[in-house]
Amino acid sequence: MREMAQHRSGSVPGILTFIAADTANFILFFGYFMVERMAQPALFARSAAMLDIRLGLLNTVILITSGWLVALSVEAARAGEMDKVRCRLRLAIGVGLCFGVVKTIEYADKMAHGLTPQTDAFFTFYYVFTGIHLLHYGIGIALLAATLVRARRIDAGFAGWIESCALFWHMVDLLWVFLFAMLYLQGAL
């Protein structure tokens, strides 16, 4: 899927258009959240304190590590070392799946304490934003899995394909970095 984005300035994978648009969309989310927070600072601080920073931290480490493994598999793909590609992708997916598990545990725990998307404005944003992020994460895992399947045969377009999937996965990581800081790490006013 290697295409020319601009004739003059060389080629970038076309998926960057998607990634830029999606990141801009998340910036809208961040802005809206922060503005709403200004209107109800005490509520937001109180509710944010109910989140488990350790789980958020664990998820951050999971995504960073998975992203590292995906970057390594792209390197291997460029060198034509398909065995390494498959091994690293399997590890990346394995580690990456843990994010979903941790998130599910987190959601279940919150629900068990009666904290739902309708509880208050903070929890609305928490569930919706992490939910939308989880959707992107799901798409990312599916793309990595498809890449792993495709890595079983020799194929001219593979390098371009794995690069695009890797870019998407790094976007998932990138968005989580900001979500983690904004939702979990912001202190009381």
Partner: peptide, 17 residues
């Protein structure tokens, strides 16, 4: 720009609150 804007918006609106 996207990265900078994300950081600026979150921190900026935090400090403004």
């Amino acid at each position: 720009g996207l990265v900078g804007l994300s950081g600026a918006i979150i921190l900026g609106l935090h400090l403004l609150a």
